[in-house]
Amino acid sequence: MAFNFTAFTYIVALIGDAFLIFFSIFHVIAFDELKTDYKNPIDQCNSLNPLVLPEYLLHIFLNVLFLFCGEWFSLFINIPLIAYHIWRYKNRPIMSGPGLYDPTTVLKTDTLARNMREGWIKLAVYLISFFYYIYGMVYSLIST
């Protein structure tokens, strides 16, 4: 029973993961609104784009913590997502500001479907990792 760096990392990861879950829920809602004509794509992209980089950075930050405390398994399960994020951002449309979503193409059915699917999958991943982090936190707290 010790509050070590690993436990701290998991606690931070839990909090961060909660934020990530919120991000992805927001993402899903936003694209659903687009689909159902509630919002103008320009406005929607303007609200979504600033959130992309914070989400990615937060996710990477958590994994840096895992790296430092040697939680290799936690790091391992997150590496695919990090790779995806990097790939995604490298292939973003030409934009001057930060972000991923281009209002002129975001309403294409393919793009819309892909973004929706991405939102759901990420939500699932974050949820699963949330529970894993709880387990990791408890495990690190109770282990001596």
Binding site: L34, K35, D37, N40, P41, P103, T104, L107, K108, T109, D110, L112
Partner: peptide, 17 residues
């Protein structure tokens, strides 16, 4: 049926507009 993609000069404001 639904419109999948639009082609032309315009701005797509919503899925069918």
């Amino acid at each position: 049926l639904q419109v999948h993609t639009f082609h032309g000069n315009f701005f797509v404001r919503s899925t069918d507009l």
